[in-house]
């Protein structure tokens, strides 16, 4: 199986690569269109600022490539946010895969949210053998509200989307590669059964 992690210069992708290797798979880091198109599974990571990350995607043409992919694609953290319609962070348009707009947490909670939280209302094969209210690790200041494509919720002042799914596209706001055994199970589900 060919797993490609899209490498567009955004964030800590080493951890994702190692997590995939701990699950017994190999992953390639690439920004090459042919390499990405021919992958069986694609991981779209991202840590950093939304508008500058979108700029990098546009410069490399990945902004038009990613929405056309037909194999399972998993966006993680900022990767998931960039797959939405837009983000309030840097007021940027997104890839428009998920029909939801990413917004900033309201005052009243500590921002960024950094730490462990729980996921609930789990739907989708991504969460096979994952219990309701399992703990996952999150680091973020912006969030996708609950929408028709929400497949997991979490609560931080308000309830919002911890994960999204549309057709072959999946996104998690949390970091499965940093969410201990639960995270590895979720990543394993993506690489295995979905």
């Amino acid at each position: 199986m060919k797993i490609v992690i899209i490498n567009y210069g955004a964030g800590n992708i080493q951890s994702i690569k190692f997590a995939i290797e701990r699950l017994g798979y190999k992953a390639v880091l690439s920004h090459d269109a042919d390499e990405i198109k021919t992958a069986d599974k694609v991981i779209f990571p991202g840590v950093g600022e939304a508008s500058s990350a979108m700029k990098k995607l546009r410069e490399s043409g990945l902004d038009s490539l990613i929405p056309q992919l037909t194999q399972p694609v998993l966006g993680i953290c900022l990767g998931m946010q960039l797959m939405c319609n837009s983000s309030e962070e840097g007021h940027t348009k997104g890839l428009g895969i998920f029909d939801v707009d990413v917004v900033k947490f309201s005052p009243g909670v500590k921002v960024p949210q950094i730490g462990w939280n729980q996921i609930a209302k789990l739907k989708s094969d991504l969460f096979e053998n994952v219990e309701e209210n399992s703990h996952i690790y999150l680091v973020h200041s912006f969030y996708a509200p609950i929408c028709g494509e929400t497949i997991a919720e979490t609560e931080y002042g308000i309830n919002y989307s911890a994960a999204l799914k549309k057709d072959n596209f999946y996104g998690t706001q949390f970091h499965p590669e940093k969410s201990s055994d639960v995270g590895e199970r979720i990543l394993g589900n993506f690489l295995g059964s979905v």
């Binding site: 080493q14 590669e177 969410s179 201990s180 055994d181 995270g183």
Partner: peptide, 11 residues
């Protein structure tokens, strides 16, 4: 850091 990241699945 590299060796820790290889082995550890928490931040």
């Amino acid at each position: 850091v590299y060796r820790v990241a290889e082995k550890v699945n928490i931040p």
